[in-house]
Structures are given as structure tokens and as C-alpha cells.
Design a protein around this nucleic acid. Structure first.
Length: 589
RNA sequence: CGGGGCGUAGCGCAGCCUGGUAGCGCACCUGCCUUGGGCGCAGGGGGUCGUAGGUUCAAAUCCUAUCGCCCCGACCA
């Protein structure tokens, strides 16, 4: 039996000044965690107990589909050079050197280590499929740790990796994970959604994220309440309402109009008496990459055309460009390409690349929302002038059309046409069909049935352990504290004798605690010599799902039971207390 | 890395502008009192004022540098 009076549960009346989000404030106030440095947290008694319950659930469900490994956190440089990520990861990877001068990195994930085992050990299709997982610390030198436990530099992650002989096998492994994740997050009592994710630079054929809605999150999720459509805003699309094109003016050929001092989309549209939807927005960017061999910097102009009222989605742009980083053009670069100041840019009079591989010529990407549109208005590449009668594909030829548009709330669902919503959310899990990236770069090969050497196809799947706790706190808190689901709470029940100097109350409380413990519950006895108010406040703060008040009513043979999440209170007979909790909590172990 | 803010007792803060014995609330310790929502009274302990250097008779306070932490942005397989 755990006695509060003997435990270290340093609750605080006030939250530390630098805590911003609810989960951070409450987990510190409730004595679950303490900060060591930016993005580094210590787990105290309550935090670690909750943590252990979470990892136990994860382990139990993962053991049904895979095998747990324990892997080093220190990785030799050569391993990450083999996959090409030693340089890709840049500053995000913690690096160090041992006494012999060998370069090492602290693992950010374990694709390399797992694939290394696979390439050394797997020889035959008969050994496949394999699912290997681990629950261990990951290290990322985040440019900016933030939001308490949401973005940190050392964190616990369950990551697993699947190796299959073919795409059909990968689908099976992927679906096993999807099911396991649903069981895990259901058991953890989270309200989550499964959304389509951007597979980004990693390519691959499919990727979904498990998200919990909370204002503290860092991701934007587009979803439809009418059907099951849900996607990360980096990936999401929408149906657009039909837009009336303008009537061609004059002979229908492009002609310049004088627009003195009218630079922004809004200004030009108002000046010409048209909707921004009939205006082309021209964005001037540069890609910059460092040649791996020569170390020289190569840059290339990338010009984007969007509908006037649309915003560019950087993840989509990155995908369209094969994940090259971009930056806004500098003024000199704009002048050099367009011979015009910003504010009057457009696609005319410039020789655009015919494809992305077309030398170093400037690339013109046109958003799909402009495909098929007619008689639009763009800048004239001449100060104080715009051009009318512009029709993409006719008046100019783009390098490519691409989906570059950021979905906004209120647009129509691409599946069913209902109104889309956008919420901020935190990512608690991610499942991802990796494909051949690591098998190929690191040389994992097995023989298939025909004795032919083939690459195993991989998937990778992650769960942020502390994010489960954080999300649970975020999704159920009030001014007094938070309410954890019993499955991940450090204790099931806290027993609160209102006055420990009253031996009847204390002994009754002890008796109840003992009996509940025998019945298989995790019980915390608040035997501190404190006033009832103090103990009630602390109990509310630390989030234990049920509290048993042992007070005056013991003379009538009853105690009060308070449910933390609903704050509902009811009397229960002391004699039947085990039965009561066997009903409201999951069956005892 | 760009922009902003903050480092004074365990936590929350005042003092700094205008240099002169370092303060308040909570927490903590002792005693009394109290016991259904962070009680009351009395007494008490605890701070190199982030660090280093400078100016000055004198620096928490002014100057310089530096470190740390937080927020916005960039970034986030």
C-alpha cells in the first residue's frame, strides 16, 4: 500500500512561470515531472508510474504482432552515412566523438540499426515477414524545444520496423500496426483520429497519423464531420466552388493595364473591379542545395502561380520539388529574373523550364486551381502595370501543374462535399510504408523463392510515449487539475480520510485501502495530517480517477466516492466497496 | 538562426528607472489551535540577486560580455 505521507509528490500551488500549455502546467504542479534543461524532463514518482502503465499497454499490444529488441542509443557515424542521413539530419542530430576519435551520433530513430541487423542476418524469404520493435529514448537536438513534454530533446518512443518480401506483405504488416495502434490508444482512453499524412521526402506509398485534438498541438488537421475524411493540412485537399471566369476583353489577347501603385492582390482586384479569384498570385522563391560532392551551392528560381485568394502549402511545394528547401527570393534576384519590382510579377516574357530536369532554367509551377481557368489577371513584370486576358497553358506554358494550395476551413470535403473543419492536434503515432529506401541504401537483400536476390520492403511505425500522457492531460483538465483514464493513471483510487487523528477514520481508510489492493487495484492512501481541503485539492490536481472520502459517514457504514472526470459524488457502503470499484473500473488484474 | 521577454529563497513575484542594511505571498521548521475544499495565531530558518568583468567611496540597481530559460517565427524522417 502506498502512503502519501511517505511519498515524494511535490505538488505546487502555482505553476512555474515558463509553463504555457495546460499539460505542462499541470504535470509540473501535480509533481509528475520536473524540468532539467530546455527540452529535458525528469519523471518523478507519479510520472514514472503513469509512464510504466503506458509502456505496459504498448508492450502488451506490440507483443501480439512483433518482437521487442533493445538497441544502443549511440550509433557509429558509418551507419548513418550508409543511409545518407548523417548529413541530411544536420544539426538535428546530437553528435559526439569517443576517446579514439570515432564519430558517434545519438539515435534519432533506429531505421539504420534495425536495417543493419536485417542486412547482416536475413538471408531468405522464408525468414520474412519480421516485425521488430523497441521502446527506448530518442534524441533530437530540436532547434526549439517547447510546450512542456510535446517537443523535447530526449523522449521515449516505441518504434517498430517491418520487413516483408513484397508490397502485399507490407500491407499486412502495416494493417497489423494500424490495428495494434487502435487497441493501444483505445486502451489509453484517448479520443484520437486517424488521418492521411504527408509522406514527405521519404516517399513511400502510404502514411497515416494518429492525432488528438488539442489547442496545444503543433499540427493542423483537416477533417470532415459528415464522412471519414481526415488529413494533415500538409496533405489535405478540398473541392473548390466554381469560379466565373472574366469575359475576354478586346481581341482576347493579353494586354497591359495601368495600375499605378497597386501592389497587393487586394489593391489590384479592387482597382480593376474584379475578385481576387480572377487574379494570379505570383510567388518568387529560390531552391538552394549543396552539391554533396563539390560542396558548391546551387540555386534555382522557382516561381509559383496561385489563385489570388489562395495560400501556398509548403509541404506540398516541397513534395512537388522533390523535397528541396526553398527560400523567398531576394530583391536583386527578383529584378534579375523579372526586370520588375515585386508587386507586378507575372509569368509572361520569361523562358520557363520545360521540366524540372531542364537545366538551370527558372521553374514555373502553377497550382491546379488555375488549370482550365481563363482570362485571368497577373502582373506585367513592369512597374505599375498588370496584364489581362491571361489563360494558363495558352498565354504561357508552365513547367508543371501541381497541387500547391493550402486548404482552408469551410471549403468542401473532397469525398462528400460537406464543410471541412481545421483543428490543431498533437501527433501521438505515425505508421508509414517506407518502401526500399533503407534496404537499398544499406544493402539488405534476401533470396526469393526463385533464388533471386531481392530487397525486403520496409515499414516504420512510431508512438510518442510521453505524448500519450500529455494528450490525456490536454483532453481532460479543469481549473483544479486533470483526470487521467484509469488505464494510465499512477493509481486507480486515492483514499482520503478527512482526519487522520481520528483513529476510526484512519483505520477504516486503511482497511478499505487494503481490501481494494487485495482486489487488484492500485491504491494510494492519503494519510497525511492535513486539513481535508488540502487533501481534496491535491487529489483533484494529480488526476487519479477516483477518490474515496472517509469521513463522518463511516458511523453509518458509508463513504463517499468522487469521480474525478465528472466530479460526481455518491455514497457507497464500506462493506461492498470492492464490488463498487469492480463495476466502475476495469476488472481487477 | 531572426524577433521579443525573463533570470532576486523551493514556487509566484516586488525592488532596478533615480546606486546606500534584500523584501512580500505561498511553501518549509517549532509551538498552540483547527479539521469537509489550499484554516488561524505566535515564533523561526533559508538568497554568492544567473555568471564574469568594468564604473563607483558604495552595484540586485549603471556599463560590457557571457550563460540559461520562455514565447513568436524559421525548423520539425
Amino acid at each position: 500500500m502506498h502512503r502519501w505521507s511517505e511519498l515524494f509528490i511535490p505538488t505546487l500551488r502555482e505553476a512555474p512561470a515558463d509553463a504555457e500549455v495546460a499539460s505542462h502546467k499541470f504535470l509540473v504542479r501535480a509533481g509528475y515531472i520536473r524540468q532539467l534543461a530546455a527540452g529535458l524532463y525528469s519523471y518523478l514518482f507519479l510520472g514514472q508510474r503513469s509512464f510504466n502503465k503506458i509502456t505496459a499497454i504498448v508492450r502488451e499490444e506490440m507483443d501480439k504482432i512483433g518482437q521487442e529488441f533493445y538497441l544502443p542509443a549511440l550509433h557509429p557515424k558509418e551507419l548513418w552515412e550508409a543511409s545518407g542521413r548523417w548529413s541530411v539530419m544536420g544539426e538535428n542530430m546530437f553528435r559526439l566523438r569517443d576517446r579514439k576519435g570515432t564519430d558517434l551520433g545519438l539515435g534519432m530513430t533506429h531505421e539504420e540499426v534495425m536495417t543493419d541487423i536485417a542486412r547482416k542476418e536475413l538471408r531468405s524469404y522464408k525468414q520474412l515477414p519480421q516485425i521488430w520493435y523497441q521502446i527506448q529514448s530518442k534524441f533530437r537536438d530540436e532547434p526549439r524545444p517547447r510546450s512542456g513534454l510535446l517537443r523535447v530533446r530526449q523522449f521515449m518512443m516505441k518504434d517498430s520496423y517491418s520487413f516483408d518480401i513484397d508490397a502485399a506483405g507490407l500491407d499486412l504488416s502495416y494493417n497489423k500496426h494500424r490495428d495494434a495502434y487502435r487497441r493501444i490508444f483505445d486502451r489509453c482512453g484517448l479520443k484520437y483520429m486517424i488521418i492521411q499524412a504527408d509522406s514527405g521526402a521519404m516517399g513511400g506509398s502510404g502514411s497515416e497519423e494518429f492525432m488528438v485534438r488539442t489547442p496545444a498541438g503543433e499540427d493542423q488537421v483537416v477533417s470532415c464531420d459528415a464522412c471519414n475524411y481526415a488529413a494533415n493540412v500538409e496533405k489535405a485537399t478540398s473541392k473548390l466552388d466554381h469560379v466565373e471566369d472574366l469575359q475576354p476583353e478586346g481581341d482576347g489577347k493579353p494586354f497591359e493595364v495601368h495600375t499605378p501603385g497597386q501592389k497587393t492582390i487586394e489593391e489590384v482586384a479592387r482597382f480593376l473591379g474584379v475578385s481576387p479569384k480572377n487574379k494570379i498570385k505570383t510567388l518568387a522563391l529560390m531552391t538552394e542545395e549543396t552539391d554533396a560532392k563539390t560542396g558548391k551551392k546551387k540555386s534555382r528560381a522557382v516561381i509559383l502561380l496561385m489563385r489570388g485568394d489562395h495560400q501556398m502549402n509548403e509541404a506540398k511545394l516541397s513534395a512537388a520539388l522533390g523535397s528541396k528547401a526553398t527560400r523567398p527570393m531576394e530583391e536583386a534576384e527578383i529584378t534579375q529574373l523579372f526586370h520588375s519590382p515585386a508587386g507586378f510579377l507575372g509569368p509572361l516574357g520569361i523562358e520557363w523550364a520545360k521540366s524540372l530536369n531542364d537545366g538551370d532554367k527558372a521553374v514555373l509551377l502553377v497550382d491546379k486551381a488555375l488549370e482550365g481557368r481563363r482570362d485571368l489577371i497577373s502582373g506585367a513584370n513592369k512597374e505599375d502595370f498588370h496584364v489581362k486576358n491571361i489563360t494558363p497553358g495558352v498565354t504561357f506554358v508552365p513547367t508543371a501543374y501541381a497541387d500547391l494550395r493550402r486548404v482552408t476551413a469551410g471549403e468542401a470535403c473532397p469525398n462528400c462535399g460537406a464543410v471541412l473543419r481545421i483543428d490543431t492536434a498533437v501527433e501521438i503515432g505515425h505508421i508509414f510504408k517506407l518502401g526500399y529506401k533503407y534496404s537499398e541504401s544499406m544493402g539488405a537483400r534476401v533470396l526469393d523463392q526463385n533464388g533471386k536476390e531481392v530487397m525486403p520492403i520496409m515499414g516504420c511505425y512510431g508512438i510518442g510515449i510521453e505524448r500519450i500522457l500529455t494528450a490525456a492531460v490536454e483532453q481532460a483538465n479543469d481549473e483544479n487539475g486533470f483526470a487521467l483514464p484509469s488505464s494510465i493513471s499512477p493509481f486507480d483510487v486515492v483514499i482520503t480520510p478527512t482526519n487522520v487523528k481520528d483513529e476510526v477514520l484512519l483505520n477504516t481508510a486503511k482497511d478499505i485501502a487494503k481490501r481494494l489492493e487485495t482486489a487488484g487495484f492500485d491504491v494510494l492512501l492519503d494519510d497525511r495530517d492535513e486539513r481535508p481541503g488540502v487533501k481534496f485539492k491535491d487529489a483533484d490536481l494529480v488526476g487519479i480517477p477516483f477518490r474515496v472520502n472517509v469521513g463522518k459517514k463511516v458511523t453509518e457504514g458509508t463513504v463517499e466516492i468522487v469521480e474525478r472526470s465528472t466530479r460526481q459524488m455518491q455514497d457507497a457502503s464500506i462493506v461492498g466497496i470492492e464490488q463498487y470499484f469492480q463495476k466502475v473500473l476495469r476488472p481487477a488484474r
